[in-house]
């Protein structure tokens, strides 16, 4: 077998594996969320399909695929059809730069466990997460319904506001790791994870990540009891399913980003790197679900107030303090 074919096959296998694992994980996160929320509310959660409800995601998939695909008469049809795909694709693409394990040797080849180790990985992540807004905004706008439009407007302003503090919370990480590459950032945490070195940045990033994933304390874009379904009010069938999958893919992405930036990535004793990485990501996902089961939704003005008047100054202060600390330590 020629050399390049082996490399190509390895790349394709890696991509396929990541794709499958991500989509299955997203489907089962839905089940996990429903189960955990049920336990929090003293309910058992879905338990009818398969043993302990383990087949529920497939039942949901069949239901979504066989539902009528409805497009409102006054909608901007192509945009309406395009928007859910946009949301899912931006979420999937972000995983290209996530390193989920130390390099692996297979058939005498050094296989890095990352699709593409960009030297501007952090910026790639920020860029794609700022593009994730488009799926939601265009979907809400194209539906031509007042609830969708309101949801989209809210989502736009919320995501712009929290992206700022998210980016600023990453600046101390980059300063500490002295690199934009995610692999280097993980390598820099071999001794102590950055969550302990800079807990403030960790907290800010965590809060902005929850806001970025449009989940419960910050789920203003789809606040059910005010806006019906927010930006996906008019969606049904698999288009709604795509929005849904995108939300959970986003959850996994943000979980892995938190892991990479603050929790030490694949670093950990005894177990292999990939296992540590998945444990950490799943724990972060569990935490997100736990937050959803615990905290009430913020009011819209509280959200803006919190983002611009508390989170943003705090993250700026944190950047300055970290810079000063690094300068002082250098002498």
């Amino acid at each position: 077998m020629p050399e390049w074919l082996v490399i190509l096959l390895l790349i394709v296998a890696k991509l396929g594996l990541i794709f499958m694992v991500l989509l299955t994980l997203a489907a089962y996160l839905v089940l996990a969320e429903r189960k955990i929320l049920g336990r929090i509310q003293l309910r058992p959660g879905p338990n009818r399909v398969g043993p302990f409800g383990t087949m529920q995601p497939w039942a949901d998939l069949i239901k979504l695929l066989t539902k009528e695909d409805f497009i409102p008469a006054q909608a901007d049809r192509w945009l309406f059809m395009l928007a859910p795909g946009l949301a899912a694709v931006t979420a999937l693409l972000t995983f290209a730069v996530v390193p989920f394990g130390p390099p692996l040797s297979l058939f005498g080849h050094q296989v890095p466990l990352v699709v593409c180790d960009l030297n501007i990985g952090v910026l790639f992540f920020l860029g794609l997460s700022s593009l994730a807004v488009y799926g939601m905004a265009l979907g809400g706008w194209a539906s031509n319904s007042k609830y969708s439009l309101l949801g989209a407007i809210r989502g736009l302003s919320q995501l712009i506001s929290y992206e700022l503090s998210m980016g600023l919370a990453l600046v101390p990480v980059v300063m500490l790791a002295r690199s934009f590459s995610l692999t280097d950032i993980v390598m820099a945490q071999s001794a102590v994870p950055f969550a302990l070195v800079n807990p403030l940045a960790f907290l800010i990033f965590l809060i902005s990540a929850v806001a970025e994933s449009k989940r419960i304390p910050f789920d203003l874009p789809e606040a059910e009891n005010e806006l019906v379904g927010g930006f996906h009010t008019e969606y049904s069938g698999m288009r709604f399913g795509l929005f849904f999958v995108a939300e959970y893919l986003n959850l996994i992405i943000l979980g892995s980003m938190l892991t990479v930036f603050f929790l030490g990535g694949w670093m950990g004793p005894f177990l292999p790197g990939v296992v540590w990485f998945s444990i950490k990501v799943l724990f972060v996902c569990f935490f997100f679900i736990w937050v959803r089961g615990t905290l009430p939704r913020l009011r819209y003005d509280q959200l803006m107030h919190f983002g611009w008047k508390i989170l943003l100054p705090l993250s700026l202060l944190n950047v300055i303090l970290t810079g000063a600390f690094l300068l002082w330590r250098q002498g």
Binding site: L123, G127, A137, I153, L156, S157, E163
Partner: peptide, 14 residues
């Protein structure tokens, strides 16, 4: 991408 596509155009859209 971050500033033009992610922020300025989003602001326009908004």
């Amino acid at each position: 991408v971050i500033i033009y596509a992610g922020a300025i155009m989003v602001l326009f859209l908004f």
